Simulated assay, not measured.
Amino acid sequence: MIEQEKQIADKNKAIRGYIIRSLVKGHHNRLLCRQLVNLMMRDAIIISPDISGYLDYLHEKKYIEYTDEKITSYTAYMNDAMIKLTSKGVDLVEGTTNDPGVDI
Score class of each variant (00 low, 15 high):
48 S>E: 07
31 L>T: 04
32 L>D: 03
45 I>R: 12
63 Y>T: 05
42 R>T: 11
27 H>C: 01
56 D>P: 04
72 T>C: 08
41 M>Q: 14
73 S>W: 15
45 I>P: 04
45 I>T: 07
28 H>I: 03
44 A>R: 09
32 L>E: 13
54 Y>K: 08
48 S>L: 11
48 S>R: 07
56 D>S: 13
64 I>T: 13
38 N>K: 13
65 E>H: 06
27 H>I: 04
33 C>Q: 03
53 G>F: 06
59 H>K: 13
38 N>R: 11
28 H>D: 12
67 T>A: 02
38 N>E: 12
36 L>P: 14
57 Y>C: 03
46 I>R: 12
72 T>A: 02
52 S>F: 10
49 P>A: 00
57 Y>A: 01
27 H>N: 06
53 G>S: 10
67 T>M: 07
30 R>V: 06
48 S>P: 00
40 M>V: 13
36 L>I: 04
40 M>S: 08
67 T>W: 11
68 D>V: 11
55 L>A: 04
31 L>G: 03
39 L>C: 11
61 K>M: 08
57 Y>I: 09
36 L>E: 05
28 H>W: 05
60 E>Q: 14
70 K>P: 03
60 E>P: 00
30 R>I: 00
35 Q>V: 05
25 K>I: 05
36 L>M: 15
32 L>V: 01
28 H>P: 00
41 M>D: 04
55 L>Q: 11
70 K>I: 02
44 A>M: 09
57 Y>S: 01
67 T>Y: 08
71 I>P: 02
53 G>E: 12
49 P>I: 05
44 A>L: 02
62 K>P: 00
64 I>E: 09
71 I>E: 04
27 H>V: 02
28 H>S: 05
33 C>S: 12
27 H>K: 12
64 I>F: 07
57 Y>P: 04
31 L>Y: 05
46 I>P: 09
56 D>F: 08
72 T>E: 11
57 Y>G: 06
46 I>T: 07
66 Y>E: 09
67 T>P: 02
28 H>C: 00
61 K>H: 13
42 R>V: 00
35 Q>S: 15
39 L>F: 07
58 L>E: 11
33 C>G: 10
61 K>V: 01
71 I>S: 03
49 P>K: 06
25 K>F: 09
45 I>K: 13
62 K>F: 06
